[in-house]
Amino acid sequence: MKVTLKVWRQKSRNTPGEFKTYESPALNPNMSFLEMLDVVNEELANRGEEPIAFDHDCREGICGTCSLVIDGKPHGPHQGVATCQTYMRSFKNGDEIVVEPFRARAFPLVKDLVVDRKALDRIQHAGGFISVRTGSAPDANNILVPKENADLAMDAAQCIGCGACVAACKNASAMLFVAAKVSHLGLLPQGQPERHRRVKAMVDQMDAEGFGGCTVTGSCEAVCPKEISLDFIARMNRDYAAALIRGEPKPIAGSGAG
């Protein structure tokens, strides 16, 4: 099979970009989409043209490095998979495929199809953790976690941090990403002491990074490679409201030591 690619090319953040059209060489339908790009890039390199820059690493759907909006959909045509797990058998011989970067104000472009997603890390720095020093933990079985909670926490925790939810959202909101992290830790007994501080800090940082607000269209859930549920956004909103009402927790009188 062969396909025609319309690919966004942009030398750097400050130079204008444009779509360029490339004809693929003969492809095997069992190739992954990224392997198809490898083959196209080898051809470009052999012709003396600059290869298309795109992000990728593990190529098994877990590191969250790959991105791409394929025919208008982040991570391509299939549900519940990342771009690296999209195979050419999902396309037809002769198809024209449009390939763009993830676009959002909080994701500045680096080159061609590569964007900078460090804003997601900065949200994590704001509070995406349980404060536990190495060596200070009690025996693991001293903390009992009901299986249902552990399973639900895992559903949220499997977020790969790719940013497809942002790319799909018309407001470029990062609510699904933040909700996944907040819910994962908030569902576990270990996460309770910092629960309200965490949600407040992470949401504030999300806003500061320039991500948009959530209008619950559900496009994030539809493109999420880990199929993380919109329900987690509701869960986070509830925690956020509770955090606002509680305000900053005040120290208990008389509890300070010398």
């Binding site: 349980i130 903390i143 925790a157 576990l188």
Partner: peptide, 8 residues
């Protein structure tokens, strides 16, 4: 350590 960090 990992359980205390919230590893599910």
């Amino acid at each position: 350590q990992c359980a205390a960090q919230g590893v599910p």
